[in-house]
Amino acid sequence: MAMAASDIVDLRLPLSEAAARALPLGQMVTVSGRLFTGRSRFHMRAIEDGLVPPLDYGQVNAFFHAGPVVRNEGGVWHVVSAEPTSSIRFERYGADVVRRLGLRTLIGKTTMGPRTAAALRDVGGVYLSKIGITGNFLSQQIRRVCEVHFLEELGKTEATWVFEVERFGPFFVAMDANGGNYFEDLQCEVGQHLPGVYAQLGLGADWEYTCVSPKPELPVQRA
């Protein structure tokens, strides 16, 4: 049984703080408006080198974690596939990027960690996670390739593309604007199952690997 269209809410970009704060974990959504892409290189350059594409982040403030497959036909860019990439890799820089650019919408695969969750809570933003392998649907929902930045330096995959999208998705709210994380909640449930799974494999709760190298004690850091 497919999701009924009424279960999916379409969000206008840029997302308002009020709209972000009202979104519950697990809600399925699509987005319409403008967004920009980036991956590891975007995050590292933004924070380490202070290099960000010259966009009006008040208007274009949805960050799509992806490296699209693109093809140039007669000087016009076409998106062959736009598969979201694993956002959890960007956790080192995620919070700083959200705060510096005031981002209210992150879109990607997986989720992000506690520092980004705190930044989204402070800014009033959400993280949307992809549903299934979906790059062909997403590429069809891209109405226009508006701009591309850093193409020469970074190549097609890591460059920043600005897309105009319509009913782009669906995604689900994996991090809400109140610090909640769908996957961290689910991981608590998995933790409840684990003793039973170990027992099923004949492993006691106290089973340990043979230790051949004790961990050195590190000096206690004083504040």
């Binding site: 699209p68 062959v80 736009a82 598969e83 790059g135």
Partner: peptide, 8 residues
Amino acid sequence: RGLVCGDT
């Protein structure tokens, strides 16, 4: 119309 997955 596209690829099985965009990350090849």
